[in-house]
Amino acid sequence: MGKPRESTQDIIRQAVEAGRISAERTAKDAFKATERRLYALPVLRNKRDDDKERLEELKQYGPRGRSKSITRFSKSGVRLTPEEIFEAAVIDLEATIAADEYEIEAMERALATIEKDDYYLTVTGRYIEDLPDERVAELIPCDTTTVWRNRKRLVQRLAVWLYGAEAIK
């Protein structure tokens, strides 16, 4: 005889367990993604500002010889005029700036939801200002364990704000 058939109850239990494991993984992924976005925020702000300066230079002085941003538009096999290539480079840079600004605004809105919390500095100190926990603990003042615990709590709140129910364990 072959393998005994599983009961409906066993199948349901397995499905529930798989769902629980998947939900835990998804919540952990949302937490980690929130941390990555927080770490990236200061760099993204600087990049956006640099890109805005480059855009203004591009609009004011025109393209620089054969930069990568321009040669990229001339590889398609279609002959474009220098004006069309220039316009495409401007549009591309404007789209990049808009995408970066959207992310910055989303993160700033999320941070605004926790800014009144007494332990807000545990998040901004670590991810934005690159401060060690010991320094954050001195500034609040509290113990470094309290810094770690409250940062975890606040990042979890940010994850829920950014990813919704997917971030809940």
Rank of each mutant, 00 (worst) to 15 (best):
E94K: 10
E94F: 03
A95T: 11
A95K: 12
T96Q: 14
T96N: 12
T96D: 13
T96I: 10
T96S: 13
T96G: 11
I97D: 00
I97R: 01
I97L: 02
A99R: 15
A99E: 07
A99G: 10
A99W: 02
D100S: 14
D100C: 07
D100A: 13
D100L: 10
E101V: 04
E101T: 12
E101G: 06
E101N: 13
Y102E: 15
Y102W: 14
E103G: 08
E103D: 09
E103I: 10
I104M: 03
I104N: 04
E105D: 15
E105I: 15
A106W: 00
A106N: 07
A106R: 14
M107S: 06
M107Q: 03
M107L: 06
M107C: 03
M107T: 10
M107H: 07
M107W: 01
E108F: 04
E108A: 09
E108Y: 03
E108K: 10
R109D: 13
R109I: 14
A110F: 00
A110C: 02
A110P: 04
A110V: 06
L111S: 06
L111I: 09
L111T: 11
L111R: 09
A112I: 06
T113C: 05
T113H: 02
T113G: 08
I114Q: 05
I114C: 09
I114F: 04
I114G: 08
I114L: 05
I114P: 08
E115Y: 05
E115I: 12
E115V: 14
K116F: 10
K116M: 09
K116C: 05
D117M: 05
D117V: 12
D117P: 08
D118L: 12
D118R: 15
D118I: 14
Y119R: 09
Y119G: 08
Y119V: 13
Y119S: 13
Y119F: 15
Y119P: 12
Y120L: 02
Y120D: 02
Y120M: 05
Y120Q: 04
L121I: 15
L121Q: 08
L121R: 14
L121S: 12
L121C: 10
L121A: 09
T122I: 11
T122Y: 01
T122N: 04
V123R: 04
V123H: 03
T124W: 00
T124D: 01
T124Q: 02
G125H: 00
R126W: 03
R126G: 11
Y127M: 08
Y127V: 09
Y127H: 13
I128W: 01
I128F: 00
I128P: 08
I128T: 06
E129L: 13
E129K: 13
D130Y: 12
D130G: 12
D130F: 11
D130T: 14
L131F: 06
L131A: 08
L131G: 08
P132F: 02
P132C: 01
D133P: 04
D133G: 14
D133A: 13
E134D: 08
E134I: 13
E134M: 05
